[in-house]
Write a protein that binds this DNA or RNA. Structure first.
Lengths: 78, 78
DNA sequence: GTGTGACTACAAGTCCGTG
DNA sequence: CCACGGACTTGTAGTCACA
């Protein structure tokens, strides 16, 4: 019963490493702080939709791909 | 360029009306305030991922469906 | 039944640093 | 190169009275 944020973070990390980017490099592309990318990947931040789009673009993917199947068995704990 | 929030709001409204729900009824299902649903549908709120999941569940759909193709601002696209 | 502005509390996000 | 922390500013969450 992993939370949605952990699932997303895991996918972001996978995608990022596929592209051979460091957290800093990704942060640079998305104009995020380097520590923020770290927080997202570890599921520590409840990312907003517009930032989700920025990340998706930086990873050369789409929001719907990043969030595919994310609601199954993982209702947010608020 | 139409913002991603407007696109999302439009889809939420479409889905909601398809189900024959009022904003109040949807808000009830998602445990949101009635006015918050209104804000989302009008694209006035940069909704977070966990709330996106709640809305998706309340609408009997998925986050990835709601966010399909929103990153390039090309809404209808077919 | 819905749109809107305003409001407060707290999370998001930045910037400095450390091991 | 990354995890993590402290201190800080910006913005969202969530709600209300009223249009």
């Amino acid at each position: 019963m992993t939370g949605v944020l952990e699932i997303l973070g895991k996918r972001v990390r996978e995608k990022r490493e596929e592209l051979g980017l460091s957290q800093e490099a990704l942060a640079d592309v998305c104009s995020f702080d380097r520590t923020y990318v770290s927080l997202i990947e570890r599921g520590k931040r409840n990312i907003s939709l517009v930032n989700l789009v920025r990340i998706a673009i930086g990873l050369n993917t789409s929001v719907s791909q990043l969030t595919e199947g994310i609601e199954d068995g993982s209702y947010p704990k608020r």
